[in-house]
């Protein structure tokens, strides 16, 4: 279980990015965190990943306290961040700690196949499309089999069609090994399509305003009335945080 216990982050310039955020995410749960820009979503993810250190509070996975990057936790960034000097296969295997080279190549091959890139292993990253590059980044994070996978607006730079395709794909991948997913997004539809629970954040300082359990059966139909109804609720909550934001500033 991923436990985020009353964490807060105050940056060196005094900005309070996050205050007293507590979250318990069950094994295999998909949690989506939504909110306007500047509400601390990305900060939250960076603290969980161990890239940044929380000013207060703790993060733990299965009882292990996380204060720096840890093999239990994988992270997919907003941009693919592939290393341009490595082939696609080299990128996917970048974080794979497997001394046996045949075994390593095999695992890379499997990971590439899972994201539909088996023909692209020998290519350079510059030869991939945006969607393909983000798939490779997904494979790089999943190949090490993390217990918790963090995704920081992973599909926000893609066109609507590719985005929907990758959302489907992410669910397929999740179904195979059921890692815990924490997805930060500003796309409510994306959150509702994927998540078991949606946490709405509000800014100044960043904190969780409200959480919604999404019980609709999966693959959710984005156009069904039930989907629309939940979307309305979440939107209303989000809008009230935005209204607060305006009053505050």
């Amino acid at each position: 279980m991923l436990q985020v216990n009353a964490i807060g982050k105050i940056y060196q310039n005094g900005a309070r990015a996050l205050e007293n955020v507590t979250l318990n995410v069950e094994d295999g749960e998909i949690l989506a965190v939504v909110g306007g820009s500047g509400c601390g979503k990305s900060t939250l993810l960076r603290l969980i990943s161990g890239l940044d250190r929380a000013t207060t509070g703790t993060v733990s996975v299965d009882g292990v306290t996380i204060s720096e990057p840890h093999p239990y936790i994988g992270l997919v960034f907003q941009e693919p961040r592939l290393l341009p000097w490595l082939s696609v296969a080299g990128n996917v295997g970048f974080g794979l700690d497997e001394p046996d080279t045949t075994r390593k190549a095999q695992r890379i091959g499997e990971a590439l196949e899972k994201v539909g890139l088996s023909r692209y292993g020998a290519r350079w990253p510059k030869e991939l499309s945006g969607g393909q590059a983000q798939r490779a980044a997904l494979a790089r994070a999943l190949v090490t089999r993390p217990r918790v996978l963090l995704l920081d607006e992973p599909f926000s730079a893609l066109d609507a069609f590719t985005r929907a395709e990758l959302q489907d794909h992410l669910l397929d991948l999740w179904n195979e090994s059921r890692p815990t997913l924490v997805l930060v997004t500003h796309d409510i539809e994306e959150a509702l399509f994927l998540a078991d629970r949606v946490a709405v954040m509000r800014p100044h300082p960043g904190r969780i305003a409200q959480a919604f359990d999404i019980t609709l059966p999966r693959r959710r139909d984005r156009t069904s009335p039930e989907f629309e109804a939940v979307k309305r609720d979440v939107l209303r909550s989000l809008n009230s945080t935005l209204a607060l934001h305006k009053i505050a500033s």
């Binding site: 890239l51 960034f77 970048f94 974080g95």
Partner: peptide
């Protein structure tokens, strides 16, 4: 910095970070 963070998330440090990133 973004590329260096990829190294950090995979826990490369010191010499490995220099050599691989």
């Amino acid at each position: 910095r973004k590329i260096v963070e990829v190294g950090r998330i995979f826990r490369l440090s010191g010499f490995e970070l220099v050599r691989r990133i």
